[in-house]
Design a protein around this nucleic acid. Sequence first.
RNA 1: GGGCGGCUAGCUCAGCUGGUCAGAGCGCCUGGUUUACACCCAGGAGGUCGGGGGUUCGAACCCCUCGCCGCCCACCA
Length: 884
Amino acid sequence: MLDKAFDPKTAEPRLYAAWEASGAFAPNGDPDAPSFSIAIPPPNVTGALHIGHALNNTLQDVLTRFARMKGDAALWLPGTDHAGIATQMVVERQLASEGNIGRRDLGREAFVERVWAWKDTYGGLISSQLRRLGASCDWSRERFTLDEGLSAAVRKVFVTLHRQKLVYRDKRLVNWDPHFQTAISDLEVEQREVDGFYWHFAYPLEDGTGEIVVATTRPETMLADTAVAVHPRDPRYAGLIGHCVRLPIVGRPIPIIADDYADPEKGSGAVKITPAHDFNDFKVGQRHRLPMINILTPDGRINDAAPAEYRGLDRVAARAKVVSAFETLGLLRAIEPTRHAVPHADRSGVVVEPYLTDQWWVDAKTLAGPAIAAVEDGRTVFEPRSWEKTYFEWMRNIEPWCVSRQLWWGHRIPAWYGPDGKIFVAETEAEAAAAAHEHYGRDEPLRQDDDVLDTWFSSALWPFSTLGWPGRTADLARFYPTHTLVTGFDIIFFWVARMMMMGLHFTGEAPFRRVFINALIRDATGAKMSKSKGNVMDPLELIDAYGADALRFTLTAMSGQARDIKLSTPRIEGYRNFSTKLWNAARFGEMNGCIAVPDFEPGAVRGVMNRWMLGETVKAARTITQALETCAFDEAAAALYRFIWNVHCDWYLELAKPVLAGGDEAAKAETRAMAAWTLETILLLLHPVMPFVTEELWDKTGAAARLGPLIVAVWPRLPEGWVDPSAEAEIGWLVGLVTEVRQLRADTGVPQSARPVLTLVGAGEATAERLSRHGDLIVTLARLHAIELGEAAPGGSALFVAGDATGALAIADHIDLSVERMRLSRDIAARGADIDRTVRKLGNADFVARAPAEVVEENRERLSEAQAALAKLDAALARLDALV
RNA sequence: GGGCGGCUAGCUCAGCUGGUCAGAGCGCCUGGUUUACACCCAGGAGGUCGGGGGUUCGAACCCCUCGCCGCCCACCA
């Protein structure tokens, strides 16, 4: 006997352990099976499972389990990302909390060892949390971006790209994070709106004949100004081009140059040019061959290129000092408050400085071409499609990708420098040494580049590096390209685009056929979840409270939303109730001897209600299958919910009760077998979304003993021929009649305990026949005393429309006539309005002429039905009036 | 400045290619000890589908326009 309810707390760990031990997570060994693979978006090793992971991984698991059941060789390959800055940050913080030894004091080697130790201790957390969610990943293939195989892939890619001149070293302006003292890519820069000022400074002309006013939000950069630019056709400055101003404080003469970059509409029309500390100015500087003066140290202080009194000052202090110097000099012309965007580093949160350094760059423009083409011609499809536009927009305007980071935790760049600075890029130190020997004609000491690669560099290789590339492994042949990538829109640029570029470049094939972009989860009020706001929903707490199945179903059901999911606990609770409902349906089956019959032929059932249920099951399976195939997760969830609760529980089991309690042994046996078959089919269909409760019921109802575990059971493929329209019509009639009676009872206030007689007046032969088959059922479901056919409505009954007949419910003893009159009047009014609308429509010559014939016909039928119904209602009202 | 979403019952959202599409869940109200389930059962109220205009025989659905809300990219004169 099943317990009163499913207990996720004890069952889930047990079931998961059994799955994992069974080896079911590994792709099946059938060489003819189509392959289906998903590479997990590798969470940071530092990470803990948050609600976004829960959504993302639930959907991947749904797809994987669905594919596995369909018989595909399904592989969901898990792993984690070393997450350069994030991890280094965590360990540095740990060091600080333990006793102030900075990473620099520790030294590179010891520090990296510390990080590995940290990873070994805490890095497995996210994997165990994914298990709690029910993720059916093939843990035997778990990878880490810094493991040996993936590191080899990274070196191979870097060296190859370098040889192809798609990776190069260049001195350019980069986004510099003064906190971590590393370059970061454009994508790691986040614009934040900040209150600030435009300071308007006067720069005196060198010949003393006047001044030019320029404005800036970053006064300290003036120390590095090397020109003032004006527009070539700006009449105000026409005579000054080629002259010089004397840069205040510094005392350096700098030229007034003509450049289109200066916008006459903005400010004074003259703009200070600081090529070493501004991206736009850098370009101007290159055009005019201006000196590039760097005035900052790596940690954001003023360096020795500035006047003595500024050296060593923090950039904030330097700003204040520059402003006050201008004031003292009488050259501060205005202070204008403004609110403007300032670039911040997304990890450290400090203001980013454009900074002139040597870095390694990837020629993204060249790599982007094929990646754009692959989406254009549909080799890779985004779902929803609208994201393709975002992808194209970025890819078509892509800038060189700065891939070097001045960090220690990551893939060290495989480049070695000779004594003269000559660079040798090679996969190993030995190869670099050999190349150096050849170059110098003798052995020379080499020094490896200190920098590591951007974390996303290794992530970009993930779909193929995890399968063994550059080896030509069996996994690579079988599972690459992967089938679907499930990820958030926030990393389309960071990750998806780069995987497309690298995948195409190195394997010739796009790394995935489909990219499903899932929404972002917000709290119930629509706010972004963040620790500081305290509105974070912890998926593990939700699993503790409601079970993993409930959380998974909720996330699946809500995943159709384009951008945001507002998650709230009542919704999760509702789906927990749903799983309990299913559990109880199984319990009902168990109590009534609904045991699966081994060679049961669903197509051969005779009972009308069983044939109806068979058709409903076919339709539900069709809808769910199609939805899962097209990533319409919300539709799949809705179809499951409706089918299980509103069809199976509300109607089928209710219809089955009298049969199961009755005396007809043949009908009873068939219904038992059918109920068992239906439940098994439900478990199959629901399993991808709610794996735990379904697996448990599969086992408890004996299906597992017959067919093996549900996780590898065969997905239902049900013939459309099993849909029986006549059974559909008949049960539809029954359901309609029962519902009518229930509504009428409730409307007129007939007590639940009352058992009135229902008479069907004017019923046709077909109806009479149906009644003979289902009369007892209707009596039970509608809580009647009896149901009979009659020529005329008995006195004291309330009348309603019942298909071709008029229903007469004998309730005079129970009801208030005025209530009944109101009910009839309301129904008459509603029918009348409907008839008016339809008459008007059919009276419109254009409609009849232009609308498709079937639509016109539909409306004609609708009209005649409504008119017949109205006539009955009118008669009922007249009769009621006569009664009074 | 460029682009993308959203605005449908009190709340959260479905409504796919224009013709029973005005829906679901939650909440609310009424009534229920029907032997699977109160994490339940039966029923109900509630919306001029953001405003305006247009196309069409017909528009929540297409076009234009306005208004809010949110996001992405660019912008440090």
